[in-house]
Each structure stands twice: as C-alpha cells, then as structure tokens.
Computed example of a mutant assay.
Amino acid sequence: MTDNANGIHPFRIDIPDTDLDDLKDRLARTRWIDDLPGTGWERGVPASYLRELAGYWGEKFDWRAREAALNAYPQFTTAIDGQRVHFLHIRSNASEATPLLLIHGWPSSVADFLDLIGPLTAGDADAPAFHLVIPSLPGHGFSGPLTEPGWDDGRVAAAFAELMDRLGYDRYGVHGGDHGAFIAPRLGRLAPDRVIGVHVNALVTFPTGDPADMAALTEAERQRLAAMKRFKDDGSAYMDLQGSRPNTIAQSLADSPAGQLGWIIEKYREWTDQSHEQPESAIDQDRILTTVSIYWFTETARSVANYYYERFHDATMFAPKPKGTVPTGVAVFKDGDYAIRRFAERAHTVTHWSEFYSGGHFPALEVPELLLGDIRAFFGALR
C-alpha cells in the first residue's frame, strides 16, 4: 500500500550491522555493579541476573530473526502533526471485518500483538474478523524519536484519529493497555461518532471518595486497591523520575544498553503474573528482548521518558470530565491490574467486564488466548 496523497509510505525494519556490532561491544564493556549479600529483587534487578541476561542479549539473541518476524507484516509510516508515526496495517479477507486500532504502552511495542494478528484478522463463524492498525506510539520505537514537546495523551489520541481517517476507516474499535488504556478512552471521547467501542486492560481507576462505594467493595476489590497503594508507595519511582526529570534518566539509558535492559526488565519482573519466579517464565525471553532492542536501536529513551513528563504536566489529565459515552469493555488480569468496576463506571459507559485469574500487565504476551477471547466477545456483542 502506497498512498502518496495522504503521505503514507511503506516501511521495512532494517537495523544496520554497525548498530548490532555497537550493541554487542557496549554490552561487553559494561562496568557491572556487585550484588549486596543477602539481597534480591526487592532492591531492583539483581546484578547477577542482569549480567547473565545481558550476556544472552549480546551473544545469542537473534535480532535478525525477530526483525524478519515483524517484517512479515505490512508496515508504513506517515507524518501527523509534524511527527512520524509508524504502524502495521493488516487487512482481513473477511468482507464484514471491523477496523480495530491496537495501542501498546510501555515497556511494550507493536511486537506485543504479533500473536493476535492471525486470529483477529481471520475470524470464524463464531468470532468477528478485524482489519488491524497497530501503531508505535509517537516517540516510541519506530515512530521516534520525538521532534518537539507537547505530545500528551490528548495529542496522541488526535493523531490516531487522523491516522484512521487517512486509512479510510469511518467507524472502528480501539483496544489499549497501559498507555493505551489512557489513550483509547480519550479517543472515544474525541470521536464518539466514529469509535464503536473501547476495550482496555490495565485500566487505572481511582476511589470516588464515597463512603458507600468503599463499604461495598468486594474482598477481591479491596486486594486490588491495596495492591495499587503498594505500587504507589514502593513501585512507582520509575514513573516519578521519568515524569519529573526525564532528560536525566534518559541520558543514562541512551548510553548504556545494560542500563536500558535493567530499566525495562524490572517491569517485566514486577508486572507479570507473580506465580512465575522470573519474567522469562511468564513471557518468552526473546519476546522481551525484542522490545528492549527496539527501544535501544531507535534511540527513544528520551521520548519515552518525556511521555510521562507530558502526562504529569497536562492540566487536563485528571481534571473532571464528562462520562465517556462509547461502550467500554474492561479486562482485569490477576497481577498488575487494579481496576475496580464501580469506580470505572463513574468515568466510562462500561458494558463488558471480565476478571481473569492468570496473566498480568502484558496479556498479549502472557495469556494471548484470554485477551483474544475477550476482545472478540466485546466487539462481537457490538455488531
């Protein structure tokens, strides 16, 4: 697909050999810290674990195979509001297929959705089929780096609405997780006449302050609320730093692949299904390193960090808003999800709610069959 009138151009990932050699060389020259005796993950990524993983990344990980897997799907770039936007666009053969925008978060990438592409585009007699549009967030991966400040959730939502318009989709669904769970509802509010439904995982909900709401919480909801507090108290330093001093941390991450690896792998360890001892037990190690590699090769550490800064400094972010009117489906996975329905219903028109007892913050990688089934069930009911 080439549409020069709309400025849409074919794209193919082709990381130069010199970049692969540079990564290997930098990893080999890493100055490693020591582990403090008797400590583990509670203080961050253990140096012994990180050193072993970095060794695999530099010596055994096959980037070219992962690159080929991504290049198996049609990819494009276009400029929207002065920023390059990269996206996968896979059309279904089904005549009644529904356009669906899939929005990733951080530390995630378009590679998260690879296992969903075949089943979602194919559909069957009992499940809807979809035309898929899978963009890299502005400033993330192959959409980056950012060329100017101001790319907050509202601006990203507007850019994705423009992208769907350029592709000729007048009516479409949206799914998002993490950052995508902020952007997808924003897009629904921006274009309620075009978005048929919003499906999210990792939705953030906040207590209403109503004593009756608090008294009515179930035990599972109380546990979720307690987990959210633990995250705020003991797991959100990365967010506070990126949201307040993005350039400071970005310089370290941009110069050290071992640092970038540690910054990201910590989140896979803390946010995946906690029944797994290590992150690679929940998600294939090569899938994790694919996303780490994308962020490293595209030099987007600064853009990623600045995204948090923009959100934290967006005066409209947490200001009162009218309730979203677009039908909304919410999937809540066992670990890394804190959404509570009675709070969500204050902000969204929730028509579908699922709770799963496995999986974590990265369901497309951890439990793709559960996420696939929930997306199908939600949008199937809207046909």
Rank of each mutant, 00 (worst) to 15 (best):
F231S: 12
A129F: 02
F113E: 04
E280H: 08
I103P: 04
L36H: 09
W296H: 01
F160H: 03
K323Q: 15
T325H: 07
R84N: 00
F333Y: 10
F318Y: 04
A184L: 06
L372M: 12
R287K: 15
A254T: 13
R302K: 08
Y73Q: 15
L137R: 02
A125Y: 01
Q274L: 15
D22F: 04
L70W: 11
M317P: 04
H131W: 12
I264N: 07
F11C: 05
F362T: 09
G154Y: 00
F333R: 00
T147D: 02
P279R: 06
F206P: 00
R222T: 13
D35S: 07
E280R: 00
S281P: 06
A161D: 06
Y309C: 09
S303N: 06
D62Q: 15
V350R: 06
V85A: 02
S48G: 14
M214K: 12
A364I: 05
A381P: 02
T298H: 05
W296P: 04
A344H: 04
A226C: 10
T218F: 03
R224N: 14
G360D: 11
D374V: 05
A122Y: 08
S252L: 11
L261K: 07
T77H: 00
T290L: 10
F318T: 03
P185E: 00
V350M: 10
F160R: 01
V198G: 02
T98C: 15
E266R: 08
G359F: 14
E266N: 05
E67K: 08
T349E: 15
Q278E: 15
F362W: 11
H179I: 03
I264R: 11
I283L: 14
G259D: 07
R287N: 14
R222N: 15
G329W: 05
L23T: 05
L100N: 09
V332M: 12
G123D: 04
Q285W: 10
D170Y: 10
P99R: 13
R66V: 08
A191Y: 01
G180T: 05
D17K: 13
A220W: 06
R346L: 12
Q75E: 07
L203Y: 05
R43S: 13
A331C: 10
A72R: 15
L137V: 06
